[in-house]
Design a protein around this nucleic acid. Structure first.
Lengths: 218, 218, 218, 218
DNA sequence: CATGAATGAGCATTCATTCAT
DNA sequence: GATGAATGAATGCTCATTCAT
């Protein structure tokens, strides 16, 4: 018999990450229902009971993936958005750049979060995340300028939706954002600011110097 | 056997529509994997083999639902967009209004298209549809004004993504678009034009009279 | 390929009995936990889903076996016990004869009822059955003679317990009851009456002519 | 690792008893199949491998419990039965009293022996025990009076079965044996002698002074 | 010696799919 | 043409058992 990988003993947290990583990959490729625990185990290179030991039931495992990826994504974007003192569109642009950058390293996570989870028993969890993101965006604007919340909220939904649309495009089409030789993530973020920035200006009655913000920080 | 409902022989195309309708309903409620062929048959009020006879395998059935709903949606929007002669933003707004209106009568279809199908073996099919929509939007602008395709395409992705985001919001949150007592579908469409219109103006170097178009046709 | 048994279509009630019979056999041999649905299916010569279709879940299947066997057994004994008008010991003897006779054709049922089910989620069901039997026996005596219930009840438990003990012996040991060439079931029943009859006489202060009853109806 | 409970090295036989006690408790509560080795280990407060080291496989562990409890029970009863010199019914009554008394302190053991083990791979073991008990009872009578073995054996089965029936009743129903305020174990034992004593007298043609024995030793 | 970590094997259950009527 | 009856193939999950430390 060829010397199979010997039954190594690993630290629980290492194993847990291993399992979560495998689960994320499989879930993102096959979807929640399409993914089998066997497939997760195989991907992780371990036995099925170990998956259960470290990840719990299939539902728990999926929820754990979800939460981990959401946390990661939110953290990146929040850190990039910076302090409330700055100009809203500048903060928005930095946040969007961070968002598109994060997707490059979290492609599977994004897929799981936005394509797999919005259905089934986790719609609630994902909805909550989405709401947190949108709220954050709405706060960014409602706080930064005097925009009333009732105006900021649909705007935030629009921007977040647009970002998701571009993200999907980017992850699907290899040419997306590659018109120039700048970093595609930045190109897409800037593009988005260019498109929605003036609209925000219009909504707020010119409270922001859009063009300045848009042309800034290149 | 006592002749209960006499199991009328129906014309094949009628049966087919019956089956597709049932399938759409079940798929939209339970998701692709959650839906069982038994449930579809029960919903259609026919036997399972008949479902197979008229709808093919589960995959084929799902794909058929997908295509039918996509066709419907595209047709509505295309019809509303009108002729190439008119002002792009006017056409865009009409198209968006039609889109949001269509969702009210095609809620199940939308759910299936965008929540269930974007994963699994149908991602391709959905992608193709999305691409058709985006192409159409890009044409609308690239044709209407002198915008180069390379600029129009990402813009189109942005707008379509934003529309999807708002649509999800709308279908999820009962308050979405109900700030005034205007038709919510129109409110959302107009909101979107307000947000992305000026950006288009900026992108094209002022080729369109945005403000006019935006305030027009109220 | 050798012509396997062709997938015959059978009437539902026939199939159901087939499945129940197989389940009873397997349960009686392996116990509830030891029995696998695969084994039941194999024994019935059908596929596993068919077992589920006709027998429900494993629990339901077991419960169904239980109830069917209990019903059978009770019916036999009740019929044999006859009308309240007759002498108690005569009725008791006839009932016991019927009981031991029933065991010959219901060996598996007995095992399932008394050896498998007294544990696990069905203890309640079996307890109820046992109580019905004991109550019936107690009534037989409390009603037939003037014995107070408080005396009849432990007596009934004693007699039923003794009958079960003999039954186990009989089903285990091939020699049991074969001292003479009379029907073993009858020998055991009569033996039991001989042993416990005089005790009943003693308990009731000689209300019954035991010896007469005991020697009667040979 | 911080030395919590220092996991004392214990003498092997002490450990073994610890493990057997835990196993008995778990088996009696959950049944053979329902009991998991994890549960046994947890109950014993030791690790699973230690259970294997001291108790062997699950089957062996169960068998060990079985044998230990059987031994205990037999010893109690044998000791109580006393010397062959005495009157058979007196000895029987003492033995029965000891039996019912033993159950109060060995409830778990009884449950395991008679409810869990009578099925599956241990039926043999339990049968052997039962046979030893019955043999003993038969010897008691065949030896004490001139009864031939062929008569004594079924009688013994009857008495033992009746005792088991009463025991089950007692352990199930809290009112059993509590008519007077005498010790229930004694009440049940005496009750049993009252019921089966006269029958033995009848079988042997009046060789024993039943009434004397029965009323004796109150 | 004692254990945490790991696994092979099995089980109840469901479902898409297809014959026989 | 339409259906009730049947099945092959998975799938989620658990457990007795054993290494590596």
């Amino acid at each position: 018999m060829t010397s199979e990988t010997p039954r190594r003993r690993l630290a629980p947290e290492v194993r847990r990450r291993q399992v979560l990583d495998a689960a994320l990959a499989v879930f993102s490729e096959e979807g929640f229902h399409g993914a089998s625990m066997d497939a997760v185990a195989a991907r992780a290179g371990v036995s099925k009971p170990l998956v259960y030991a470290h990840g719990g039931s299939k539902d728990e495992l999926f929820a754990a993936c979800l939460r981990r990826e959401a946390e990661r994504l939110l953290r990146s974007v929040q850190a990039a958005a910076g302090e409330p003192g700055e100009a809203p569109l500048v903060r928005l642009r930095r946040a969007l750049r961070a968002f598109f950058h994060a997707l490059t390293t979290q492609r599977a996570g994004w897929t799981v979060l936005y394509r797999q989870a919005s259905t089934g028993p986790f719609a609630g969890e994902v909805d909550a995340l989405r709401r947190r993101i949108v709220e954050q965006a709405a706060d960014l604007m409602a706080g930064g300028l005097g925009v009333p919340r009732a105006v900021a909220l649909p705007y935030a939904h629009t921007v977040v939706g647009a970002a998701e649309g571009l993200a999907d495009w980017w992850l699907t089409d290899p040419d997306a954002g590659r018109a120039t030789d700048a970093e595609p993530a930045d190109v897409l973020a800037d593009m988005l600011v260019t498109v929605v920035g003036p609209g925000l200006d219009a909504l707020t009655g010119g409270a922001i110097g859009v063009s300045a913000a848009v042309s800034d920080e290149r």
